[in-house]
Amino acid sequence: MSVLLVNKNNFQKEVLESDRPVLIDFWASWCGPCKAISPMIDEISEEHPEIKVCKINIDEEQELATQFDIMSVPTLLVIKDGKVVNQSVGLKPKNQILQML
């Protein structure tokens, strides 16, 4: 599965109402560690069809960033049944990201 780009218009449907667990990568174009984590997020998306993998650009989606109190990028959130069940900040190795799920 490819990574889904989420914005405030499709957030409700794709994230909160998702029937699969959702991994969201909050990122920004000017953030180096975001670039480093991005290929790992892409791989997880390819390798784990049971997870819905999404990316949110915090500069374009400031409302969503504020809603989730994002104060650092990259921030990863795991959302199940509309609720945040796990959160991690900063560049992490892929196995640690997988452990969050």
Partner: peptide
């Protein structure tokens, strides 16, 4: 508190403040 107010990289996180 890392990412909740504590940071080590102003260039990365400054904009949130």
């Amino acid at each position: 508190l890392i990412g909740k107010g504590v940071g080590y990289c102003a260039a990365c996180d400054g904009i949130f403040y």
